[in-house]
């Protein structure tokens, strides 16, 4: 078992553990947020937010922030987070205006940040080569993620993000759920709907940014859609849906990482494949459950 070797041998443990730990944190984050993302049909917003991270990565490398040092990792994350938050707010603002549809708003923001990120990364690469500095990461690892690029500072930031998301979701569970269930009427019951939407978008941006380095810009959204989609297939009770979703997120990440170590493949795509296999299983289970007379 290469997995055990990677995680126990003194030389390799420092390389793999941060990625594994961050992965498990991200699995929980995805599990917590994806139920609302699926139910509120925010999957495409998550896509917009994670792609905005690409523009942030490009800008960071152009500014010479590489993430190689502790301070660099923090600065890189701050820039990427800034981009993603701006994208989340931009989408919320654009789609809040009458006459602009949400999917149009996301399409615009997504394309803008991808174009920007690509141009900036190429420019950063050119300048780095001229100055003899280290080259920015290859496009592949930015787009699809990499376990070994994840350092302890990323794991720490992931832990803080999990604390923030977990605490806010617990404290705001009643108004958040009311807004999510009945956006149009909740304000008549004293629940501040627009504020809840904003909070959810900000939490989503934060969680996506923590995920991007591990799973990549293209695949990060899978973690914020699939666990919730899996859980909603197998249960229709809120408490068990939330528990199942977190379980699916963690299982998907753990299974994907084990597969990636054993088969010597990239982590991000393996995580997504495991999650999709779980989704297929849950769809079958859901079909059987719905056809059994007991639940009718």
């Amino acid at each position: 078992m290469r997995t055990i070797e990677y995680l126990t041998s003194p030389e390799l443990a420092g390389l793999y553990w941060p990625g594994v730990l961050t992965g498990l944190i991200v699995g929980v984050l995805g599990g917590l947020l994806s139920v609302l993302v699926v139910l509120k049909r925010l999957a495409f917003i998550g896509q917009g937010v994670s792609h905005a991270a690409f523009g942030g990565v490009g800008l960071a490398y152009l500014l010479g922030v590489t993430g190689a040092t502790q301070a660099g990792a923090g600065a890189l994350l701050a820039i990427v987070l800034g981009f993603s938050l701006a994208a989340a707010l931009g989408i919320a603002w654009l789609s809040g205006k009458r006459g602009t549809r949400t999917d149009t708003a996301i399409g615009v923001v997504l394309a803008l940040s991808m174009a920007l990120g690509f141009v900036l990364l190429r420019e950063a690469g050119r300048r780095a080569a001229e100055a003899g500095r280290a080259a920015p990461p290859d496009l592949e690892s930015v787009l699809f993620g990499s376990v070994v690029n994840v350092g302890w500072s990323d794991a720490l930031i992931g832990g803080v993000a999990l604390l923030i998301v977990g605490a806010l979701m617990f404290l705001l569970r009643r108004p958040m759920l009311f807004w999510a269930f009945d956006e149009e009427a909740c304000e008549a019951f004293g629940t501040p709907g627009p504020r809840m939407k904003l909070v959810l978008l900000l939490l989503l941006a934060l969680a996506v940014v923590v995920t991007v380095k591990l799973a990549g810009i293209v695949l990060a959204t899978a973690l914020f859609v699939l666990p919730g989609a899996i859980a909603l297939r197998v249960s229709d009770r809120l408490a068990s849906v939330m528990a199942m979703s977190v379980l699916a997120g963690v299982l998907g990440v753990a299974g994907g990482l084990v597969l990636s170590f054993e088969l010597n493949r990239q982590g991000g795509p393996m995580i997504v494949l495991v999650l999709i296999a779980l989704y297929a299983l849950s769809a079958c289970a859901g079909l059987i459950r719905r056809q059994s007379p007991a639940s009718a």
Partner: peptide, 28 residues
């Protein structure tokens, strides 16, 4: 409300939905 525009596929029971109506101002 006139038409229920709520998300009816939410995993919520009738009791949970009615309780939402009483949820404002509660300590978290």
């Amino acid at each position: 409300p006139q038409r229920v525009r709520a998300e009816l596929e939410f995993p919520l029971s009738v009791r949970q939905v009615v309780a939402m109506g009483a949820s404002s101002g509660l300590s978290p």
